[in-house]
């Protein structure tokens, strides 16, 4: 089949089913916008993980006089406990995992605390000796924090070994649930747009069943019978996915970069370059979905 002729068949089909074509465009547009948002959210989570996990440290809190009896029966950690911890951190078994560590005494902890909670009432009541003396440890691989936990958990004078990532994990859990929700909605919408595409194409085929009958009779190949219908679905879905791509980029430009990034200046956010990775994905998903749905829909008109 000649290209020009096929193009006129496709245009004819699109024109004849205009209302349905518009609904395909809208449904693919919305569903792919959800897909795009979900992927951006995943990218954002990845980016934040990289950023924060690199900064997350493992804290080895030493006992104070106000520590609970159960973990610190002897009260304030003595000088020999600090030496013991330091020795272990420098021992050949741990050295390969540790990038660096430093010790924070009561006064430094107090200074940090005052800075962190400046203006807060709690800052006035806390005293230096209530704050733990702490060994802050940076690991080469933050995933290996259990090694430290195991090495120091039982040591007398150590109140707790805490991986800061455990705080972050809660935040990421919430973000993950949000992106999972977006993905589920996107999946549902994609299913409905696939069904809509196949219904529309079936309708289009039905309104052209005379042509189809004649095409089969005179020996048009299955491919050339199918192609105009598949293209019809693909063209409609393509328009929808381009709209979704534009929306995702606009979301990044105006909402993420324009609003979020300015109100939360210390967090790194996804940018247009990340969006540029998502847009081809959306277009590819739109095209593949439409081609598969309309190809399947037209199949039963091809029985010889």
């Amino acid at each position: 089949m000649r290209f020009g002729f096929m193009l006129s068949e496709v245009t004819e089909g699109l024109r004849r089913n205009l209302a349905m074509v518009v609904s395909i465009i809208l449904v693919t547009f919305i569903s792919l916008t959800f897909v795009g948002t979900a992927s951006l959210l995943q990218m954002q989570i990845g980016q934040m993980k990289n950023y924060w996990y690199d900064r997350a440290q493992v804290a080895i809190y030493l006992c104070t006089d106000v520590s609970p009896e159960a973990t610190c029966p002897r009260g304030e950690a003595a000088e020999d406990v600090k030496l013991q911890v330091q020795e272990r951190l420098d021992s050949p078994t741990l050295v390969p995992f540790i990038e660096k560590y430093y010790f924070e005494d009561h006064d430094q902890a107090f200074a940090n605390f005052q800075e962190q909670f400046a203006g807060n009432a709690v800052a006035q009541y806390v005293k230096p000796e209530q704050l733990n003396e702490t060994f802050w440890v940076n690991l080469y691989d933050p995933n290996q924090s259990p090694i430290l936990t195991e090495s120091f958990a039982g040591l007398a004078g150590v109140e707790e070994v805490k991986d800061q990532r455990s705080y972050l994990d809660q935040i990421f859990l919430i973000l993950n649930i949000a992106s999972l929700a977006a993905v589920s909605i996107a999946a549902l919408m994609l299913v409905s747009s696939a069904l809509l595409i196949s219904t529309t194409i079936r309708l289009s085929a039905f309104s052209r069943r005379r042509e189809l009958g004649i095409m089969r009779l005179v020996g048009a190949s299955n491919f050339s019978i199918q192609l105009p219908f598949i293209l019809e679905g693909v063209v409609a879905a393509l328009i929808g996915s381009v709209l979704a791509g534009v929306t995702v980029l606009a979301l990044i430009e105006f909402f993420v970069q324009g609003f979020l990034a300015e109100s939360l200046p210390f967090t790194s956010f996804v940018g247009l370059s990340d969006g540029m990775l998502v847009v081809p994905l959306l277009i590819a998903v739109g095209i593949v979905l439409a081609a598969a749905a309309s190809g399947l829909a037209i199949r039963r008109y091809l029985k010889i």
């Binding site: 042509e211 004649i214 089969r216 009779l217 020996g219 048009a220 010889i304």
Partner: peptide
């Protein structure tokens, strides 16, 4: 389809567009 290209067919009901 390629076999059918070598055949012509007409019917009682013409089947024109």
């Amino acid at each position: 389809p390629f076999f059918r290209r070598r055949l012509g067919v007409v019917f009682q009901d013409f089947r024109l567009l």
